[in-house]
Design a protein around this nucleic acid. Structure first.
Length: 624
DNA sequence: CTGGGGAGGGGGCCC
DNA sequence: AGGGCCCCCTCCCCA
């Protein structure tokens, strides 16, 4: 019945040739001529149809709407808008788009060809958005902008709730962020009165605020709400979001983004990004597994290291998580009902030297510098900060679902990893003096992430941590999905994976995220310590620190199992004086961070020396 | 500005 | 001859 398009085109060409002859040269006759435009037609029927162009007559009316048309076929074509019928489908396996008009499909197929051609001319692809570029330099230019945009989205879209609810229309494949939106679309666009093709989830407020107890329908709303609490306000801008780089959907969990990408991996716009995101997620899962395994090894070699989570997941924060720091002999305050405070109370860590960083001192608070450190302060510190951050995020057990606990795990692992990396990569900074606040290239702010003074007392533990680091970096290298385009950032050295812009980009992203998490941990710890200090409880033992931060009465410390920063800080008459110098410094440090977020800087790459030291105003003097 | 899809409309061919 | 169908151009809108 249907001629092939080529045959019909050929017939039309012949016809047009005849038409040209009709106009004066040829012998074929088109006797039916329009009196207005003098066009000629072979039949009266064609002429009548043509005359409607001049008269505007539209005898054919759409039965769904009030539109009228000059030709019946146009009505039929138009009617498909109402019925949702899209008979012309793209045959390409990765596409599957459907169209109302054949010509639209044909145009679409031409676009496919054009895309292939462009791809040939643009072999350099962005790992974030999948765009192709003709030159390396244009890719680099784009990458820097894209990363800024990416991070901007992370911070700006905290209130945008997409979640894993993205669904697409089975008819036109449009994407919707929720079943309700899809239902509306089905009703109005496809006139589906049932519009029940996709089950919609009833939203329930099952995300409680850990501070005030209010419930929210999703984590995004909760995070937005957290901004109103001083305890958690810092978290709302720093927690990681998961945006789709293609359609700008934002998810609060990686799982949401992964589900979205799985769903959209056949979509031409998403296919590059989906491939990248899914592959990267797989690689990161391997990283996490490796780290957890290594952490377990550390814990096994020295149980005091990671037993901060009580009987639960050792890396999972709990308001009731009390350390049984057998080596230190101290016990945590049972009064630590607030996650941050409770964790901060876990300060009975002794140090066997005075080389520890200011932050180690700070977090030890009034517990004073001890004598023999029997385990790795770095590990404890890292874990503690991570736990503070995670706990402060309201992710205590029982508060949220599995996704929350996995997020906790991820946060803990990430932060601990960052700190261990820093420790590993700046071995000299652990030397006495070089990391003190306000002094040396590796100033005290930087030392937040590398609480030094680390006598490697527990060789096996540190070996395990080292192994974890190596494994993670190897895994990171493995996760560099796209082949290197041969651009060496220049300053990277040592590690093969850092010889590509993708590697540098990934490392930079990881740095940014980890830095923000560490920042959150610091700020929350300080604010809560200060809050407790201000609470006026002064009935504690005499284990306050001395001003120069040297070791003091460890016996008092041991004799007073319930020890907290606050309690230790209240042995002085005024609030200002009640604060230990360490706590004062912590507060100043936190203020410095407010002024310049770069203050908390570290590097995941192996060129720790490249780090520009924070501004001097971020280096509070220990003695001031 | 550009690419891509939606949609209207003119014209030709087939039966 | 005329109804029906198809092709394709073009414009518009949106991201």
């Amino acid at each position: 019945m249907h001629k092939s398009a080529m045959q019909m085109q050929h017939a039309r060409d012949l016809q047009r040739g005849v038409g040209m002859t009709t106009s004066g040269i040829g012998t074929d006759v088109k006797p039916h001529q329009c009196q207005q435009c003098l066009k000629s037609f072979s039949s009266n029927h064609q002429l009548v149809q043509h005359i409607r162009v001049h008269t505007g007559e539209k005898p054919y009316k759409c039965s769904y709407c009030d539109r009228r048309f000059k030709q019946l076929s146009h009505v039929q074509q138009h009617t498909r808008l109402h019925t949702g019928e899209r008979p012309y489908k793209c045959h390409l396996p990765d596409c599957g788009r459907a169209f109302i008009q054949l010509s639209n499909l044909q145009q679409h197929l031409r676009n496919h060809d054009a895309q292939v051609e462009r791809a040939k001319n643009r072999p350099f692809h962005c790992n974030i958005c999948g765009k192709g570029f003709a030159t390396e330099s244009s890719l680099r230019t784009h990458t820097s902008k894209e990363l800024q945009l990416h991070l901007g989205v992370l911070q700006q879209h905290a209130a945008l709730i997409g979640g894993p609810n993205a669904t697409s229309c089975p008819i036109c494949h449009k994407l919707f962020l929720g079943g309700e939106s899809l239902m509306e679309h089905m009703k109005h666009t496809h006139k589906d009165p049932n519009a029940s093709g996709v089950a919609t989830k009833r939203r329930t407020a099952n995300h409680p605020c850990p501070v005030c107890g209010k419930h929210y329908v999703n984590e995004g709303s909760l995070r937005k709400h957290l901004a109103c609490h001083p305890e958690t306000s810092q978290l709302t801008t720093s927690l990681r979001m998961w945006p789709c780089s293609v359609c700008q959907a934002v998810f609060t969990h990686e799982a949401g983004l992964l589900t979205h990408m799985e769903h959209m991996r056949m979509d031409p716009k998403h296919q590059f990004a989906a491939q990248y995101v899914l592959s990267r997620a797989a690689a990161e899962r391997r990283e996490r597994d490796t780290l957890l395994a290594a952490a377990a090894a550390v814990s096994a070699s020295n149980p005091s290291l990671l037993q901060m989570g009580g009987g639960q997941n050792s890396m999972c924060p709990s308001p009731s998580a009390h350390s049984d720091s057998s080596s230190g002999g101290g016990r945590l305050s049972s009064a630590g009902s607030e996650p941050g405070v409770g964790l901060l109370n876990n300060n009975n860590i002794n140090n066997n030297n005075n080389c520890s960083s200011k932050l180690s001192d700070i977090f030890r608070g009034a517990a004073n510098n001890g004598h023999l450190q029997q385990y790795n302060v770095d590990d404890l510190h890292a874990n503690r900060m991570a736990m503070v951050a995670a706990a402060a995020a309201g992710m205590q057990p029982g508060v949220d679902s599995n996704s929350a606990s996995s997020a906790v795990q991820a946060a803990v692992v990430n932060l601990a990893a960052a700190m261990r990396i820093q420790q590993q990569q700046q071995p000299q900074s652990s030397q006495c003096g070089s990391s003190s606040v306000g002094g040396g290239p590796n100033n005290g702010v930087n030392a937040i992430n590398a609480p030094s003074g680390m006598q490697q007392d527990d060789d096996s533990a540190n070996a395990a941590a080292q192994a974890a680091m190596n494994a993670m970096r190897a895994s990171m290298a493995e996760s560099m999905m796209r082949p290197s385009i041969g651009v060496d950032p220049g300053h990277h050295q040592g590690h093969q994976a850092q010889n590509s812009p993708e590697a540098a980009l990934r490392i930079h992203q990881a740095e940014v995220i980890l830095r923000s998490q560490a920042e959150v941990a610091l700020r929350l710890a300080v604010s809560q310590a200060a809050a407790v200090a201000a609470s006026g409880n002064s009935n504690t033992g005499n284990n306050s620190n001395n001003s120069n931060g040297t070791a003091t009465n460890l016996n008092n410390f041991h004799q007073a199992p319930v020890v907290s920063v606050a309690q230790a800080s209240h042995s002085q008459p005024t609030l200002q004086q009640q604060m230990s110098p360490e706590l004062s410094e912590a507060i100043r440090l936190e203020n410095a961070l407010r002024l310049d977020p770069r203050a908390l800087s570290f590097s995941l790459s192996s060129h720790g020396g490249d780090q520009t030291p924070p501004q001097s105003h971020n280096q509070p003097s220990h003695t001031s």
